[in-house]
Design a protein around this nucleic acid. Structure first.
Length: 960
RNA sequence: GCAGGGGUCGCCGAGCAUGGCCAAAGGCGUAGGCUUCAGGAGCCUAUCCUGCAGAGGUUCGUGGGUUCAAAUCCCACCCCCUGCACCA
């Protein structure tokens, strides 16, 4: 076993034996409850889960060290269809799938066979998942664990839905879905062979009249164009049927029959006919009562909608092209006994006005784009473009009667409704592209009846949900708008299905609450599930009254106790536990859950809980990429969390993920980088161990002050970033920046170990504990501490250790270092002797004076000169001062505001002393003799007379 | 189409809200040196261009603009990513 693994196992056992992550209410401590959306158990935990969950764990561990009573519960999602589907694939002997289970998920052969039972499959992944969640070091209170098929949990969901129903938020209605006629079930994206992302399009059907009794239902997306109708197109070579459709006589394409049957239409076919039978006849526009001709259109696709198309040549490029085409082919028309003269006389009817176009926009766009005929692929593009323009900026013309002068955008829906009221239109759904089910059947649209919905359209509910968001913290803040737009955009959500695991909808006649709808409030269940399991409370005992009492404080506990056999004491304890933990303080997940799960969570809390129990904050993060690509089992880049931990260890896996990204950016998992972190941790362990186990000396020089000062800054930075869930910045600072500070100190100090260094290392590993808990425990144990670092107080910045003088003195050293290197680079000389000259006493007076004045904006050189000429002690230097002033002004403008302030605060320091203290360091660095003089020393070595160029914080340098 | 997020010096990625501390943090990679039996790892140094004195020049998707001053502000354009519903 690797050493990393040994260390992990050791500390995991110790933590669990000491129960340090089990949290019970403690009124003396402030609480923090953090949560992570429970993972779906149709597969193993992967590094994507680990990314989101690690952020939660880092925050939990950080807050725990800060002294909060932290609860971090976990559960497993079993509800829904995919688990069943997966199990069925095994049952069918799907070898591709079985191979994936074996090779990617790492499921043993004999185990896979048992997966024909979906429960066994889910149970397997759940127990494996738990092992891994423990190994990665998540500081979870496992006493609250459950799966969504626990009967006790289902009682909670029943209570939730009973309440939602009482509030009127659960409604029934119809809903169009993509449907597989063979499977007799909705075909979601995951079940499709082709047509991913295709959704039902709603067409308006205009009921043109062939005669008194017969209707030609023509489908359109643009019902307003009914006013511009000039003719109907029928494909002469296609097969149509005459059928009784809901008591009306319709002529539709043969293909339309099956579709309409699934859309609340009863259809009896009377006869079949060829399209050409209709061509040449006339029909009536039901709105304008115009009598118009039916013309042959071979472009009409009978697979789309009703197979009947009406023509609006003024605004539809295809119609224009087809009409012009026919007008030039009298012989074709004669074949259908149509008078060519009549067709020539058809005038497009212009009904829409748009800027930049005249009478016939269709004609104009055709000419602009140089489209030759209806078979030109650009015609499609022209259509789209014109539709878009007319929709967004088009206005209806006076010939559109009461809709005249109205913009299409604002009138469209109303116009469609009005037509329907007049009985001259209907609705139909169809798919814009071919959708094929996994079973190879072509899908259609079905209108599901008696669907159960969560009515997110309800304006009061929306308003309340917005209030929940308004009082929440969102990390990162930029995600807040996403939530608001989601709330506005959500409409009725079909919340039940007929198959899969889950909780039956109360009074739902066999409908089961679907997976996204049963996982909105369960964080409240965590607070009491501990008591339910510990006291073996049966599902039967968990009546709505029990939950009412616990969550709403409603009802009489003595009464409830009598009917349920739950003691009043236990009822109170559960109520107390809920009140202590709730609301949750943080819920963190990937951004893809914003438009659904996270927003649902907000809606449901808004509905069922009072403001004091509304969520405190939500964190959102990016989607994990693997080597630059989305992670997919089929792509072969799927990384299970188990594999990652086995290979890199828990700490490196956690930190590799955390260093990847924060905010909404997508982190990229690169094996090379994770390995690098693993190596870094090995080095860090040796590095820190060496220091921690070496005897120290008490020293108190400028360098110690500098290091102490620096570490205070780092504590401050890491703390602040963690507060805002900026895990990447926090880890970067804690790991690399702090390490660099320590390395610099050691470089400057040489081989002496000091108490300051040791103390700094201790602080350092505390800062790293939320990220790499195992490594830090191990290092902590080497400091002869008997407690866990995981429960050690988080460091706080110590004001008394902030030392700007030490910082500026060290800045002086680094400035000299870079300047010298710069000179060496430019001159390409190998130094034998480096001489450093610090500025004269009188220069300080001027330097500080100028700094003070430039701060307020005064930079007139003449003013300065005047002032200094009148200062007796400066007068002797006045010649030099003239050249010095512009130089100082120039250097100070380059200084940061903080450093300027610091320089003023510090006033003068003994630069010569500071540099002399670093002589050894410079000597070693440049392998040259180092001399330091003050400009005012007369016996200085200064062959080139450089010393006079020295100014405070910028000593002169001479190199031989 | 609708909505949201982005394009920074080889790569990843800070910075952009509050314009000047920015040739632009940090990590990776690369090069040189040290250490090591060797491999790996580690440590140190360098890493836009130019420069015989601590300097100058050209960069932050493209093109304009505002300003003494723009990676940062404004306008236009190009490109990339994610979600869009019955599904976790």
């Amino acid at each position: 076993m690797s050493q990393t693994k040994q260390v992990e196992e050791k500390w995991l056992t110790k933590w669990e034996d000491a129960h340090i992550f089990e949290a019970d209410p403690d009124p003396s401590k402030q609480k923090i409850m953090v949560t992570f959306p429970f993972p779906y158990m149709n597969g193993p935990l992967h590094v994507g889960h680990a990314f989101s969950a690690s952020r939660v764990d880092v925050y939990a561990r950080f807050k725990r060290m800060q002294g909060y009573n932290v609860l971090w519960p976990w559960a497993w999602h079993w509800t829904g269809q995919p688990l069943l589907g997966a199990s069925q694939r095994v049952a069918k002997g799907d070898q591709t799938y079985i191979k994936i289970l074996h090779e990617v998920d790492g499921v043993p052969e004999e185990q896979i066979q048992k997966f024909v039972d979906p429960k066994i499959m889910a149970q397997y992944y759940t127990s494996e998942g738990k092992k891994i969640a423990r190994r990665i070091g998540f500081s979870v209170d496992w006493r609250r664990e459950f799966t969504t098929v626990y009967p006790t949990f289902q009682k909670f969901i029943e209570w939730q839905y009973k309440n939602l129903k009482d509030l009127g938020y659960v409604t029934r209605g119809t809903h169009p879905v993509v449907w597989c006629p063979k499977d007799q079930s909705p075909t979601g994206d995951h079940d499709r062979q082709t047509g991913e992302g295709v959704t039902p399009d709603e067409y308006t059907i205009i009921k043109y009249k062939l005669d008194e009794n017969t209707i030609l239902p023509a489908a359109t997306f643009r019902p307003e164009t009914i006013y511009g109708t000039t003719n109907i197109w029928i494909n002469p070579d296609a097969t149509y049927v005459e059928a009784k459709v809901n008591n009306e006589n319709w002529i539709i394409s043969q293909e339309a029959v099956e579709k309409l049957k699934e859309q609340q239409k009863t259809i009896t076919i009377n006869r079949t006919l060829q399209g050409k039978e209709l061509v040449g006849k006339t029909f009536e526009n039901p709105l304008t009562h115009d009598k118009l001709p039916i013309l042959p259109g071979w472009f009409v696709n009978t697979k789309t909608a009703t197979g009947i198309v009406y023509s609006v040549p003024a605004h539809a490029p295809f119609d224009w092209l087809a009409l012009k085409d026919l007008q030039q082919k009298p012989e074709t028309l004669q074949q259908f006994n149509i008078n060519p003269q009549m067709v020539l006389q058809i005038k497009p009817i212009s009904i829409i006005e748009i800027d930049g176009y005249g009478e016939y926009p269709a004609e104009e766009i055709i000419k602009q784009m140089g489209i030759k005929n209806q078979h030109d692929p650009k015609a499609e593009q022209a259509t789209k473009e014109l539709y878009k323009k007319e929709y967004h900026s088009g206005k209806l013309k006076p010939n559109c009667e009461s809709y005249a002068n109205k913009s299409i955008k604002e009138i469209k829906t109303q116009l469609a409704t009005n037509l329907e009221k007049l009985g001259i239109s209907d609705k139909m759904y169809d798919l814009s592209e071919q959708v094929t089910c996994r079973c190879t059947t072509t899908c259609i649209v079905k209108i599901l009846q008696d669907q159960w919905f969560l009515n997110y359209t309800n304006p009061e509910w929306k308003e309340k949900a917005k209030q929940v968001i308004a009082q929440m913290k969102i990390y990162p803040e930029t995600a807040r708008t996403n939530f608001y737009t989601t709330i506005d955009w959500l409409k009725e959500w079909a919340c039940a299905r007929t198959t899969g695991f889950g909780t039956p909808l109360p009074g739902g006649n066999g409908w089961i609450i679907e997976t996204l709808s049963d996982s909105t409030m369960y964080m409240a269940f965590y607070t009491i599930n501990k008591h339910i399991t510990q006291n073996n409370i049966t599902p039967e005992a968990l009546t709505p009254q029990v939950f009412d009492y616990i969550y709403h404080g409603k009802g009489n506990k003595t009464q409830i106790s009598k009917t349920t056999n739950i003691t009043t004491q236990l009822l109170d304890e559960m109520r107390k536990e809920f009140l202590y933990w709730y609301p949750f303080d943080l819920r963190n997940s990937a951004k893809e859950l914003v438009p659904n799960h996270l927003s649902f969570c907000i809606f449901h809390h808004a509905a069922l809980f009072p403001p004091q129990h509304w969520p405190k904050s939500i964190g959102v993060n990016g989607m994990l990429m693997v080597e630059g690509q989305g992670m997919h089992k089929s792509k072969g880049n799927f990384i299970t969390l188990k594999n990652a931990i086995d290979k890199y260890g828990a700490d490196a896996t956690r930190c590799g993920l955390m260093i990847g990204a924060e905010g909404m950016d997508d982190p990229d998992w690169k094996a090379e980088n994770i390995n690098e972190i693993k190596n870094k941790f090995e080095t860090l362990t040796t590095f820190a161990t060496n220091i921690l186990t070496t005897p120290q000396q008490q020293e108190n020089t400028q360098l110690e002050h500098w290091l102490q000062n620096k570490i205070q800054q780092r504590i401050q930075e890491v703390t602040q970033n963690l507060e805002e869930l900026k895990t990447r910045t926090a880890l970067q600072t804690a790991l690399f920046e702090t390490w660099n500070d320590i390395k610099w100190y050691i470089q400057r100090k040489g081989n002496t170990n000091t108490t300051t260094l040791t103390d700094t290392i201790k602080t350092w590993i505390k800062l790293l504990t939320p990220f790499a808990p195992y490594m830090c425990e191990e290092l902590w144990s080497q400091t002869n501490q008997t407690n866990f670092i995981s429960t050690t107080p988080w460091p706080k910045p110590d004001e008394t250790k902030i030392d700007i003088t030490a910082e500026e003195q060290e800045n002086l050293i680094t400035d000299i270092l870079t300047d010298t290197q710069n000179i060496l680079k430019a001159t390409k000389i190998t130094p034998t002797k480096i001489v450093i000259y610090t500025a004269a006493q009188w220069k300080w007076q001027i330097y500080l004076n100028i700094l003070e004045k430039t701060k307020t904006g005064e930079t007139k050189i003449s003013e300065f000169m005047k002032e200094y000429t009148n200062t007796p002690e400066l007068k002797p230097h006045i010649k030099n001062i003239a050249t010095l002033i512009p130089k100082i002004i120039k250097t100070t403008t380059k200084l940061s505001q903080t450093r300027k302030t610091n320089h003023i605060k510090i006033q003068q320091t003994n630069e010569k002393q500071t540099i002399q203290n670093a002589t050894e360091f410079f000597k070693e660095r440049f392998n040259a003799e180092i001399q330091v003089y003050n400009e005012e020393e007369t016996d200085r070595y200064d062959p080139k007379n450089r010393a006079q160029t020295a100014i405070p914080y910028q000593p002169a340098i001479y190199i031989e």
